[in-house]
Design a protein around this nucleic acid. Structure first.
Lengths: 222, 222
DNA sequence: TCCTTTTTGTTGTAAAAACAACAGAAATGT
DNA sequence: ACATTTCTGTTGTTTTTACAACAAAAAGGA
């Protein structure tokens, strides 16, 4: 555990804490680190979530299999992100999504239930911790609304332009790399991959953008 | 303000507080109550949100006008809901949505910025308050994911069945009332209203469901 | 009550997307 | 370097959706 301290210290959920405080918190939370391999399921639909999961390394997709068998990618998570944090607060709420490890991952797991019951008053840093969680959830919330904006556009073209424009803004540059491969992007935007590829080609031809693999250049203001 | 105490006390954001604590908090937050009429814009795209808005009465839509002029309804909010709470935590983040009053509303407005700066340590109930906010955001988060599930279905029929099934589950009954009229539902599910009406008729004819106006009876397990 | 306005349902047509099948390119492993 | 697998792009066909225009029903006001 010790060897990960520096990494853990950098996660937003422990923002603004000293080494000593961090150590106390990890103890209080009965923290463990677990390794997952690409393809592993970290959280399954129906699970009751009572622990806090923090990605220290690797990549995790939050997905949902629709009733009719299609995959829906809700979000793609990386280092420092939390998995299903919103489910911790709503006790006894079943997860209605799956968390799938897509690149070998290192996950810090905190027993929030145990701690929040025991040390609500004792642990002086619990206040900072919950403030951090609030900020994290806020950010996630904004991102979910952004995703809704992306997939709410009426045509494949509009979805692509909205998504790419948002990515461009996030990177503060019209040259940027996207996190999805083509199939994943299609599953994220809820469109057919081949139709999407076709539309991307058209956009390139018409001079709206350029791309090679995951590297994109957006040439228009959207 | 006094005459609203009982109502305010029931909002989740003040959950678990005594009358005395509530009074202190409202003072600390420089609380005011503002009336809005149907059609009013409460929050406009681009606004920097520094206040907490709690709906005491009325109805508010969180909407977005797509670049191409279509309306997207993100969520419909009622009594006790917060408006754009996630934007308060992320300082200096512009709102990318509009909050439109759809039925005459009474909004409690709290100056969070002022308070959180001043009384972080002084106000002993700040802890409970932020815990409540965390819970509210969690719930909102789960609802946003549910909305993503609804609109991510591939056909109009699947969107309707998924949405209605989710509503049915929330009401714990296969007979329930929905909050949207037809045009609003279409804007929420991102589909054409007339095509949606047509699909609803077909579903009724095929015996999947029954409805009259906003009252629905779901006859199948989805 | 009757008239007006708003909401909901119906239909045909044009446009867009999904799907399937395949070709080419890139990545991976040996 | 070569073979194999995965990923991406292309095209034609079928299915679905959006759109427009209108009809019917419901709600609201005088």
């Amino acid at each position: 555990m010790q060897k990960y301290y520096q990494k853990i210290k950098k996660t937003p959920i422990f923002y603004d804490m000293t080494d000593f405080e961090l150590e106390k918190m990890l103890e209080c939370f009965k923290a463990v680190i677990k390794k997952y391999e690409a393809g592993d399921t970290i959280i399954r639909r129906g699970d009751i979530i009572t622990k806090i999961y923090v990605i220290l390394d690797g990549e995790v997709n939050i997905e949902k299999d629709s009733y009719w068998g299609r995959r829906i990618i809700i979000q793609k998570l990386h280092e420092n992100n939390n998995i299903a944090l919103s489910l911790v607060a709503s006790k006894n709420t079943e997860s209605n999504v799956n968390a799938i490890c897509t690149k070998d991952a290192l996950i810090l797991i905190l027993n929030y239930e145990k701690c929040s019951a025991m040390c609500q008053n004792a642990c002086i840093h619990h206040g900072a911790f919950i403030r951090n969680m609030f900020k994290i959830l806020s950010k996630e919330n904004i991102e979910l609304v952004e995703k809704i904006e992306n997939i709410s556009q009426k045509s494949i073209r509009d979805k692509l332009l909205t998504y790419l424009s948002n990515e461009s803004q996030k990177n503060k540059s019209n040259i940027f790399e996207i996190q999805f491969n083509r199939q994943e992007l299609a599953d994220y935007l809820n469109i057919d991959r081949s139709a999407m590829s076709f539309e991307l080609s058209k956009l390139k031809q018409e001079g709206y953008l350029d791309y090679k693999k995951n590297k994109f250049v957006l040439k228009v203001e959207v």
